[in-house]
Amino acid sequence: MTTTRIIEIECQRFNPQTDSEPHFQSYQVPFSEEMSVLQGLQYIKDHLDGSLTFRWSCRMAICGSCGSMVNGVPQLSCHTFLRDYFPDKVRIEPLNHFPVLRDLAIDQTDFLAKLESVKPYLIPDTEKTPAQGTYLQTPQQMDEYYQYSECINCLLCYAACPQYGLNKEFTGPAALALLHRYNADSRDAGSAERMEVINGENGVWGCTLVSYCSEVCPKGVDPARAINQNKINSTKDYFLRFLQPRGGK
């Protein structure tokens, strides 16, 4: 049985062509038990205000497009339900710490550059041709990196990270977790190339282990753990280079 109730959804609005400052606009949205916050936004766009701009695609926490601040918490709006906020209102804002393009849509350019900087792809020791077969891996070897490969680049962790908020140069949780995902993969031999990013002031050392990134991740990735494991790796790299012969890597 579905009962329809009315909830107030308050959206942050910003049109760069006409507004100098963002402002809030409220909508009265009828909802049923199974409706997500994203479906609430879709209702507004279809029935109340076609100008409301927000990103979405899969509706099932796989694509990572619909991240926004829901009552101040970074959330996938498809993964958050209106029933949990009723009878209070829901306030939806664009993700923290990113430039706003329009309404709830943010500009991810900065993150994409950072993602590229960590070389998020396998760099094998010796390249194999398809005729030479596949790269083999045991289930234990896969366990080493599997959780980090679940990242969907939704950027909730960047919105949660106070360090990214204070310093936009910080490589940030998702990019560093993905860096670790490839370094921890037994088929990869690219660690030395990625070490430079880890060792820099804006690599793992930009993190102060607040760990809110891991808390808000909708996919159970633990970026804080990846970053802090690499603080140990960076420290080893820092001191062990003095024990290596000159010219050693």
């Binding site: 430079e196 820099g200 002031e201 690599g203 420290t235 820092y238």
Partner: peptide, 13 residues
Amino acid sequence: MIRRSNKPVFWSL
């Protein structure tokens, strides 16, 4: 070339 941070010294302590 990204400059290496000296944080490992202070973080170890």
